[in-house]
Amino acid sequence: MTSILPARRPGRLVALVTAVTLLAAPLAAVPATLSAPSASAAAATSVTIKKIGTKTAPYQKKATVKPSVVAKGKVSVKSKTLTVKKSGKTIAKNKKSVALKAGTYKVTTKVTYRTYKLTSAKKKVWSATKSKSKTQTLVVKQGKKPSRTTPVSKYNCPSWAPVKGNQSGIYHVPGGRYYKVTTPEECFTTASAARKAGYRASKNG
C-alpha cells in the first residue's frame, strides 16, 4: 500500500527565510558599531577660538587682553594673535596681547596650527599649516576709583589722588609747606582716606 505525503506549503518556507534574515540583521550591524571609535578619535582633534569675556581696567589704567584658544588632540598651535579696532581704526595688529583702556572694541583672534597623524612606527606626519579666525565685540569696563593708589613719579601723585603719604607715616596735602618736596609712598584721594590708612597730618603744613 503506497502512502502519499502531503506537499510542503510555500508559506512555511517564506516564514523560515524571513526568520533567518531577521536573526542575521544584528550581526551585519556589528562592523558599523565597531568602527565608531575611529570616528570619535578623529573628532577629538580640534582647535577652538573662545570668546574673550568682558574685562575691567583699573581706574584710569589699562586691562591686558590675550587670545583665548583651546587645542585638543593631535595638533600643535604655532601662533595666537589679536587685531583690535576701535571706531573702525586699527589700534593693534597681530599682537600676542594688547593693553586696552575702557571702551568698546572689535577684536579678531587668529590662530595658526598644524595637525598630525601617527604612522605604524609612531612617527608624526604633519599637515600643512592651517588657520582660523573669529571676530567679536569686546567691552572693557572702567574700574571704580579707589581711595588710594601708587605715585606716578618720584615726587608726584595722580591728579585724582593728590594727598601724599610718606614712609614716616605722615600725609601732606596740596599747598602744604613740604608738599612739593615730599616723596610719596602712597597717594590718597582725601585726607580722610589717608587717616583711615594710618597716616597723620603734617604738623608743619
Rank of each mutant, 00 (worst) to 15 (best):
S38T: 14
S131V: 02
Y105G: 06
K141W: 08
K78I: 03
G53E: 10
T54W: 03
K106R: 13
L27G: 06
A57I: 14
A128S: 08
V84A: 15
T48V: 11
Y113E: 00
T48E: 12
T54G: 14
A71R: 00
K74C: 00
S76G: 01
K62I: 09
K66H: 06
A99V: 14
K62V: 11
V69F: 02
L118T: 13
N156V: 05
A42E: 03
Q60N: 15
L100C: 07
K123Y: 02
K144H: 15
V69P: 01
S120A: 11
K123D: 12
K74A: 01
S153D: 07
K132N: 05
Y155F: 09
Q142W: 07
P26V: 09
W126H: 02
S38H: 13
T81S: 12
V152S: 15
W126Y: 09
A42C: 04
V69Y: 02
L82Q: 10
S131Y: 01
A102Y: 03
K66Q: 05
A71C: 01
K144M: 14
R148H: 15
V20A: 07
T108W: 02
A36H: 03
K132D: 11
Y155K: 11
L23A: 12
T83E: 09
T64L: 06
S76V: 01
L100Q: 12
S76H: 00
A43R: 10
Q136N: 08
K66T: 08
P151H: 08
K78L: 05
L82N: 08
N94R: 03
A41H: 10
A44M: 05
A25D: 05
P26T: 08
T108P: 02
P37F: 11
T115K: 01
V20R: 04
S127K: 02
L27F: 13
S120I: 13
S46I: 00
K117C: 00
T90K: 15
K124H: 10
Y113T: 01
K55W: 05
L22Y: 03
T149W: 04
V140A: 06
N94Q: 07
L34T: 05
A121G: 10
K110C: 02
T54E: 12
A39F: 08
G103V: 10
V77Y: 01
S35I: 13
K80C: 03
S120V: 15
R114E: 09
V30L: 12
T112I: 02
T64V: 09
K110Q: 14
L82R: 10
K101W: 05
Q142V: 12
L23Y: 03
S147T: 06
T83S: 06
T135I: 09
A42R: 10
A41M: 11
T21W: 11
A92Q: 14
S38G: 07
T135V: 09
K134D: 12
I52H: 12
S76C: 00
T104R: 14
V152A: 12
K80R: 10
V125Q: 11
K123Q: 05
P31E: 04
T33G: 10
T137G: 05
K78G: 01
V30T: 04
K117S: 03
K89L: 06
